[in-house]
């Protein structure tokens, strides 16, 4: 059963978006002392974008750590990014970076908690994506 892997900081913005999808999802742990997440099935990654306008540190460290595991990386099928248009050209930059590094499609961007339309769109889109796999 394919699924969702997500990272969300203590602000919980990305988690709240993922919750609204009502699909099975695994969370990348927040702290280095937590046991790392190992996935067994293909998944779409949901990640917030960090940092300012210069693109430094856009991908959360925890996500990098998760993707540095080769097995985890082999199962990624796409990435959905969260961000804020206030960050200009760095808007949802984490999605572009992961897409490029992992050679998977950058599926969708949403702002902060996302809108009801974003939730519907991503739910439908993921359904289609898994049918094609």
């Amino acid at each position: 059963m394919p699924g969702i892997v997500y990272f969300s900081s203590v602000s919980e913005n990305t988690r709240r978006f993922v919750d609204r999808l009502e699909l099975p999802a695994a969370r990348i742990p927040l702290r280095p002392v937590d046991a790392p997440l190992h996935v067994k099935n293909p998944y779409v990654l949901f990640t917030p974008t960090y940092g300012g306008g210069d693109g430094q540190g856009a991908v959360p460290k925890q996500v990098i750590r998760f993707l540095n595991d080769e097995h985890n990386r082999s199962l990624i099928r796409g990435v959905v990014a969260a961000g804020n248009t206030n960050f200009g050209s760095a808007y949802c930059l984490a999605g572009s970076i992961v897409a490029r590094k992992c050679k998977v499609p950058h599926l969708y961007n949403f702002e902060l908690l996302g809108t009801a339309e974003d939730v519907t769109r991503v739910r439908e889109g993921l359904g289609q994506l898994w049918l094609q796999q």
Partner: peptide
């Protein structure tokens, strides 16, 4: 729509694959 990000700088030292 196969969107792959453009060239961007990242902190490559801990992004080792």
């Amino acid at each position: 729509s196969y969107v792959i990000g453009k060239a961007v700088n990242t902190e490559d030292e801990d992004w080792d694959f």
